[in-house]
């Protein structure tokens, strides 16, 4: 879907798998550049979803970051070693 035009400088862990990333970039960008397209499943039909707006409006990019669910991957900046995983099923206030 997307490729990088610049270098990476750290790694993050997606479901335990190490992916290259750049500190400070949106987590959603790091995942997309690494070929992750589905970030979550919808609570209604279980359909896969990925980021749509990249600006905090659509909530389609919800993931778990450091064990905290319902984080918008487009608004979370990457920090080296950050651990994240897909959001499954219910969302809303944990």
């Amino acid at each position: 879907m997307f490729r990088r035009s610049g270098p990476t400088d750290c790694t993050i862990l997606w479901e335990g798998r190490a992916l290259p990333a750049r500190a400070g970039e949106p987590l959603a960008a790091a995942l997309l550049a690494a070929g992750v397209v589905a970030f979550r499943e919808t609570p209604v039909s279980g359909a896969p979803r990925g980021p749509f707006c990249l600006m905090g409006a659509c909530f389609d990019c919800l993931v778990e970051v450091e064990g905290v669910p319902n984080r918008q991957a487009c608004l979370v900046p990457v920090t080296p070693g950050m651990r994240a995983g897909p959001q499954r099923g219910a969302r809303g206030a944990p």
């Binding site: 879907m1 997307f2 490729r3 990088r4 035009s5 610049g6 750049r22 970039e25 949106p26 959603a28 960008a29 790091a30 997309l32 550049a33 980021p51 749509f52 707006c53 990249l54 600006m55 487009c74």
Partner: peptide, 15 residues
């Protein structure tokens, strides 16, 4: 606009 945001914030290009 979302793809443009990826370009600006992370230098991503469509593949």
């Amino acid at each position: 606009g979302a793809a443009q945001t990826l370009l600006k914030s992370a230098g991503l290009l469509p593949e």
